[in-house]
Design a protein around this nucleic acid. Sequence first.
DNA 1: CATGAATGAGCCTTCATTCAT
DNA 2: TATGAATGAAGGCTCATTCAT
Lengths: 237, 237, 237, 237
Amino acid sequence: MTRKQREIQEREQQILALARAILVREGYQALSMDRLAAEMEYAKGTIYNHFPNKEEIVAALALKSLEKRRKMFERAALLAQGSRKRMTAIGCACDIYASECCEHFAVEQMLRISAIWEKSSQTRQKLIQQCEFRSMSIVAGIVRDAQAAGDLKLPVGLSAEEFVFGFWSLTYGSHALISSSPSLAEIGIENPVRSIRYHGWTLMNGFGWQPLETFEQTEAWTAELAEGIVKHAHEDE
Amino acid sequence: MTRKQREIQEREQQILALARAILVREGYQALSMDRLAAEMEYAKGTIYNHFPNKEEIVAALALKSLEKRRKMFERAALLAQGSRKRMTAIGCACDIYASECCEHFAVEQMLRISAIWEKSSQTRQKLIQQCEFRSMSIVAGIVRDAQAAGDLKLPVGLSAEEFVFGFWSLTYGSHALISSSPSLAEIGIENPVRSIRYHGWTLMNGFGWQPLETFEQTEAWTAELAEGIVKHAHEDE
Amino acid sequence: MTRKQREIQEREQQILALARAILVREGYQALSMDRLAAEMEYAKGTIYNHFPNKEEIVAALALKSLEKRRKMFERAALLAQGSRKRMTAIGCACDIYASECCEHFAVEQMLRISAIWEKSSQTRQKLIQQCEFRSMSIVAGIVRDAQAAGDLKLPVGLSAEEFVFGFWSLTYGSHALISSSPSLAEIGIENPVRSIRYHGWTLMNGFGWQPLETFEQTEAWTAELAEGIVKHAHEDE
Amino acid sequence: MTRKQREIQEREQQILALARAILVREGYQALSMDRLAAEMEYAKGTIYNHFPNKEEIVAALALKSLEKRRKMFERAALLAQGSRKRMTAIGCACDIYASECCEHFAVEQMLRISAIWEKSSQTRQKLIQQCEFRSMSIVAGIVRDAQAAGDLKLPVGLSAEEFVFGFWSLTYGSHALISSSPSLAEIGIENPVRSIRYHGWTLMNGFGWQPLETFEQTEAWTAELAEGIVKHAHEDE
DNA sequence: CATGAATGAGCCTTCATTCAT
DNA sequence: TATGAATGAAGGCTCATTCAT
């Protein structure tokens, strides 16, 4: 009995893997239950035994992606000392998530199409919201620690979450633009990722987040850190 | 003959207007040539005389939207004095574009997320790229002016365009997140737009963009400026 | 243009004819848009250009059937003199409708499955109700004439329509039972149709409908009448 | 072993009860083996151990319904004295069967209309025919008793069964029309059930069935009788 | 040019039935 | 015997696109 159940579990993962591949390569429209079944060499009904509809597949994928990012945040937050370095580590995790795990980022974006979100099951919706909330908590926690430690002073009227929202927008926006603009280089943006790292660093400076260090210093230890995050990220799969 | 051509031009605009309305209200899936023809009270073939396929319609809309933003940038850049203020005015235009002209922003996003880009004609693709290039030029121009005027000193290895890319990511990312996250307030982000303005202001400070002024001062004259931009924006339609 | 339209009209009739054949021979479940298209050798979409869904086809057929019966009632009511003979003629028309035009009767029964009725368009529903109302009016009119002429006296508390309802139930019930009971003969009912005629005649007697005549006399002139009704009935098609 | 068999018997009844509920509430299309299994909390295969296919379930239900009516007939025939009163009692049972036990009547109709009959097993078909035969025998028996007692004289050429067929048609037809016509009241038929009772009474008069009594007298003792029939009917379940 | 009927591949989904465990 | 995963034909329906008129 356990063997059977393991097989089923395994196939579920295979379906999701295939769905993610199609989704990333050819977009939401290209994903269809027919095709999924055909490429899996299973009957359509079998796919439906696993997922009641197409939207649930996308939602399941998105949940997995958000979970992955959350885990990366958790680890990144532990890999550095001091509030500013920990925040930088989070940014680093974002970069890796978007580039190294670009399939995940792509699916996350897909969920943001309202039509999908609305058709997915409420259970899944709750799980997704919880996951996002926990991710935010991790980062907002670092900000609050920084305040407690005297490393950072937030202006009146800006909550820790709103503070985080700035960095979130910066990284999310940049990755969205990178993945959807075929020709950033042609309009003069040679190294978009590095430049966003620079903006992030500058933004922290702007808020006076202590301890200051040069961008080059940051880049140096960040590169090392990245290796660790990448390694962990690939281990899970 | 000229009258005829004008009529055709006009109908083309009507088709686009209707398509945009459907697209924004009900999403990409809801847009169909059948429906377009039915609601226009024209035959399907007639629609096909204007646009060779569905994707071209969306691409045409996106182009119009990008053009609109470019025009808003042009005007915004003229409405303020001094490089930092002009840059702030651009940010202000972005906010207004995303909120006031949210149909435009929505279509622009659609082009980014769906697989429309690849299916649209190369001519249109070129036009879109040119338009984006010109928008970027406007803003990068302000940055270069700032450098020339001694208001701003860019670090080595960061081009004017890469500098702009930071602000672009910040605003684009925030608006994308706002429009697709149903519950930012629930995770502690009460006033996302204002907080992004604050981050933009802080980022400029971080780069040491002169002349400095308090956030409150900026907010004050920005509010005034916004009115002018909004008025212009609605005049075009 | 007229030729095209005629072709379309004609095909619509062909679709209905085929649908009726399937419906009568193999029942509601056997009717499918796929099959209709296949047997017509047209594309599925073409069928859908004629009828928006399956239920509408059944409803259209039922309407045609009810119209046919209404016309038969109209004619039958004119083919005889005197209220009782005219009522008998209506009964005769019912018999012919159910036996000679048994496809029509079968479809009429199908409409009585609630699932079909509810899914058909409201326009069609109205038309059907009107048609039934007009059929009832014809027969109730004969009853009222009979009362006016002093041939019949209805008991207090029984409206003309309720009076008709008895005869309607008798004939409808008998035909429904005949068409759905494979083996009436085996349980001792050799000639169900004739026996219902006898019951109808007896029921009229029970109500004292004048002028009385023997069942044999009635049978004699009824046979003649039937020929006329049958002829007319087939002419329409 | 006997306990096991009893359990199986019991489950069979549970399946049928559930199937009837679905059938009556939501129609034939809504009944599916999947749903049956799910709502029973048994595996699909288990359902198939009881019934080889869906049609058999409906046929089994119909058989039960016909059995119920037969029992009601048997009892009704005992509850009154004198042939005419006993026949009236049968009519009364019919009314109660169609209204009080409407689920049964609905399933009986289903068997008649859909293509279920042909797909059900021959064994079941035989059982159904036998049951119908026995029901008919009860009523035809009353008619023969009436003839023997001199209460009724059937015309030449009308068998007792054909005589019964008239009353059967009248009641079956009326109940079928009532249950499928949403708006009898709108076409002037306020009290269809009572009017059919009146027609039945008149028809008996037409045949000269002794002893005559006024319709009001009949109505009076019929009301009393009905109570008894209803009570018995509900006891069985 | 405008028309709109025709096409047919494709979509999502259901469900009766089988069969290995 | 009970289970329930697997099947795959079938169903209803949509829609981008073509093309004869």
